[in-house]
């Protein structure tokens, strides 16, 4: 009995010392212009940070920038206050981080969606085209008309990368499948225009599409709503959006920004921090498709088998998904 008690004290002691050590890190997140509650990309980062806070009890600081001049300012401000690791969300931080990381070589930085080559920076990028390929496969198989749609947010290379992977996946699953592609807009407002998203989705339904994938942040909420209203199918993005309209969301392309943030914080806490480039594809679990109770009924066994086969083919390298950003071109 005493032995057990002694063990207990020992364990408690080690836990205490662990938490005392853990107090040493002061993590911080800098969100992109979309803001932390964009229901999408930035919010995924927020979720990851919150999850870390809940699990470790370590509080973090965050900041939402208002304009581009604040990028450097925010990172520098965090670094100067002794925050580390500092995670920058979004490729737009690339230049700012390159500059600030050189000024604070002892601070750990991480950036999501871009690569910054510096000894104290961890760069996390995702192979969104691989995840999009999978949902493209599912879309084509679920479609009875052979026509599927894509609604992008702002027309930038990153979103064309989603579209291209999706198209390739759809064509691979069903030869001759037709893919309609629309971008919501050309300004940042395109990330948060659910009304227009819904209109684009409706017009694609009118042209015969019956499954629509969105990569449009807040705009996509309108796409999924339109799909649910029309009795057709939508596909979510970034976070698991299956539960938004159970039975009307075929699946979601998961992009684990939350994991990237939580891992960056956790690695720093556990003294396992490593810098360098992390390319998170299917193999690394950085992207995936979502299957849960909400969409179980929509995904048949054949579809499941097909998408799992595509997944293993991509992981093994048998199928190569074209990366739009490699040559700014989509061959499909």
């Amino acid at each position: 009995m005493r032995k057990i008690a002694a063990l207990g004290i020992l364990m408690a002691g080690s836990i205490l010392s662990a938490s005392a050590f853990a107090e040493d890190i002061k993590p911080a997140v800098a969100y992109d212009l979309g803001g932390k509650f964009d229901k999408s990309f930035n919010e995924a980062a927020y979720t990851g940070a919150e999850q870390f806070k809940k699990e470790s009890g370590i509080d973090y600081q965050d900041f939402e920038i208002q304009n581009d001049s604040q990028r450097e300012q925010a990172l520098r401000r965090f670094a100067r206050n002794g925050m580390s690791p500092v995670v920058a969300i979004g490729f737009s931080y690339e230049n700012a981080l390159a500059k600030v990381a050189a000024e604070f070589p002892d601070t750990k930085f991480a950036i999501v969606d871009a690569v910054v080559d510096a000894p104290n920076v961890r760069s996390v990028v995702f192979k969104e085209h691989e995840g999009s390929y999978l949902v493209g496969t599912l879309a084509a198989l679920a479609s009875s008309s052979g026509k599927v749609g894509f609604v992008g947010g702002m027309d930038i290379p990153l979103i064309r990368k989603f579209a291209c992977g999706y198209k390739q996946g759809a064509l691979a699953a069903k030869e001759g499948a037709e893919v309609f592609e629309n971008m919501t807009g050309t300004t940042g407002a395109a990330w948060n225009d659910p009304v227009k998203g819904g209109e684009l989705a409706k017009s694609q339904f009118d042209r015969g599409a019956d499954v629509i994938y969105h990569a449009a942040g807040g705009t996509g909420i309108g796409v999924l709503q339109a799909a649910a209203d029309a009795g057709k199918l939508g596909i979510g993005v970034d976070s698991n959006q299956n539960g938004l309209h159970p039975g009307s969301v075929l699946t979601s392309m998961l992009k684990r920004v939350d994991v990237a943030v939580a891992t960056a914080f956790g690695d720093a806490k556990d003294d396992k921090w490593t810098s360098g480039v992390y390319v998170l594809g299917l193999k690394e679990g950085g992207v995936d498709w979502a299957l849960d109770d909400n969409n179980k009924a929509l995904v048949t066994e054949e579809m499941k088998a097909a998408v799992e086969k595509a997944k293993s083919d991509i992981i093994s390298g048998k199928v190569e998904v074209h990366d739009y950003m490699a040559d700014q071109n989509c061959p499909f």
């Binding site: 737009s92 690339e94 230049n95 930038i156 050309t186 300004t187 950003m325 040559d327």
Partner: peptide
Amino acid sequence: AASLMVYLLVNVMAKAGSMQPETRT
């Protein structure tokens, strides 16, 4: 103006292979 500039930055003036729609530094 916003549409025109996005067109130019995405299709004409962007650095090849860059994620950011922006010109070289």
